[in-house]
Design a protein around this nucleic acid. Structure first.
Length: 436
RNA sequence: GACCCGUUCGUCUAACGGUUAGGACUCCAGAUUUUCAUUCUGGCAAUAGGGGUUCGAUUCCCCUACGGGUUGCCA
């Protein structure tokens, strides 16, 4: 029996980080075992479905690189892949239940009659779990067909998993208590049930349930915030799953190779934006300079900075210095245009150095008087100017950095001197001195 | 309330029943970088509490506490 997994979101909101991780684990498991990954849209709640939400799901999954084998835009032998188009399947299986006497009408709706017995499931993550259906107050017969003739989630979900020959259902732990219901349905339908694996939920940093509006909740926000897809995939994989080694940075392919349901945790994990940013930095470090410049381009352009000509080389200077692509514009803006802001904190640090002003003034003159301008000559001059005043080069380098860039961090000072050239360096040193 | 799942540094996590309880993020301190970042070294920091079982429990069992989930003609 071949492995077939599915991600079955309902298009009623944005693609959520929890949903993305569910999709990821289904994807990893299918790829790992050479199986198929199905994308099925559970759009049975007409009142809440939106096209916008459908698009967010598709674009979010594509951005993450979670390519599906069957479903929207791919076709497949088990379609249609929208539940709204599968009505006849549900009617047909509903008749099976009716013929078996397993449903009864209740105020126009139809309820499924549970067998009153303990139901045990073998969950691939949670282990053996038993729910006692002899306790009717806790497990009332469930409505599977509404009075308006439409079918509810439990029923359509089971019918589709059955018809689509899904072998493994990997879903959030919020579905754990639903599983015995689904098991009963499979049994009544006379079909074998798939294997189930319930993965722990993702919580906010403070431990509360992560919902739509929370920080980091919507996958669509990640690219805007400067994250790259491989980093997000890497980070959410680490939430509730362990590679069982001390490695942490993985590509999607490496995750496929290493993934196993046995290594999935049972306890919920909190989302840590700090570590997510660090993982992003690690993936940024793996990018080639040109690829990094290209990835950061939209952010730089959006900041109103020129991205033609020398931009790629300038961007590459800060590849090792940012955690998020969104930090690039402020890191290199001073190299692309002459107008830039000064970081008050950095300026204060310079002001706190009593000797800085005199050193900078001397350096401006010495730069201007240099017979020949080059990066090496300029760097050498910084040392000479400092030495002449009885200071170390290090004491002067920070003030120079602030004078030229407006802040304490950024590209290598030598790179800055070279790119700016003598004229701009002198002008900026003087302008900075006047502002002190 | 009832039912179900869970509980190792602040966070993510590792540890055939035998480890000085390991790693990572954050933070702090050093080294390297004549600057910034990277990198490296070191430091702070955990088995929720109580009972068992065992020669020995983070690990197995029970109770309590706490957290989460479910309890819909939502999915």
């Amino acid at each position: 029996m071949s492995v077939r997994t599915r991600f079955a979101p309902s298009p009623t909101g944005y693609l959520h980080v929890g949903g993305a991780r569910t999709a990821l684990f289904n994807y990893l498991f299918a790829r790992k075992h050479g199986g198929s990954f199905v994308l099925r849209v559970e759009d049975t709640d007409e009142a809440r479905n939106t096209q916008e939400a459908r698009d967010a799901i598709f674009s979010g999954m594509k951005w993450l690189g979670l390519e599906w084998d069957e479903g929207e835009g791919k076709g497949g032998d088990f379609g249609p892949y929208n539940q709204s188009e599968r009505r006849e399947n549900y009617d047909r299986w509903f008749e099976v239940l009716r013929a078996k006497g397993r449903v009864y009408e209740d105020e126009g709706a139809w309820r499924f009659r549970f067998e009153r017995k303990p139901v045990t499931m073998q969950d691939l993550v949670c282990g053996e779990v038993t729910i006692d259906y002899r306790d009717e107050s806790n497990t009332p017969d469930m409505v599977i067909r509404r009075s308006d003739g439409s079918y509810v989630f439990h029923f359509v979900n089971v019918v589709d998993d059955l018809e689509m020959q899904i072998s493994h259902v990997i879903r959030g732990e919020d579905h754990l208590m639903n599983t015995p219901k689904h098991l009963q349905l499979f049994e009544a339908l006379g079909a074998p049930a798939p294997h189930y694996a319930h993965i722990p939920l993702i919580l906010n940093p403070n431990g509360s349930k992560m919902s739509k509006r929370d920080l980091g909740a919507a996958i669509g926000d990640y690219p805007k915030q400067g994250f790259i897809a491989e980093a997000v995939v890497n980070f959410i994989a680490l939430l509730g799953w362990s590679p069982k080694s001390e490695d942490e940075i993985f590509t999607l392919e490496e995750l496929v190779e290493r993934f196993s349901l046995e290594a999935v945790n049972r306890s919920p994990a909190r989302f840590d934006p700090e570590k997510c940013a660090w993982v992003n930095q690690q993936h940024l470090l793996k990018l080639a300079p040109d690829a990094f410049a290209e990835a950061a381009k939209p952010f730089v352009a959006q900041a109103g900075l020129p991205v033609d000509g020398g931009y790629p080389a300038v961007a590459a200077l800060v590849r090792e210095k940012v955690r998020l692509l969104s930090e690039v514009p402020s890191a290199i803006g001073f190299l692309l245009v002459d107008a830039f802001d000064f970081d008050p904190e950095a300026v204060e640090k310079v002001k706190g150095n009593a000797a800085a002003k005199g050193l900078l003034a001397a350096l401006a003159d010495d730069f201007a008087g240099l017979s020949e301008w080059s990066v090496d000559a300029a760097k050498h001059q910084i040392g000479e100017t400092a030495k002449a005043a009885g200071a170390k080069a290090g004491q002067l380098m920070f003030p120079v950095r602030v004078a030229l860039s407006g802040k304490s961090g950024g590209p290598d000072l030598g790179d800055i001197l070279g790119l700016l050239g003598r004229e701009k360096c002198v002008a900026r040193l003087k302008r900075f001195l006047e502002s002190l």
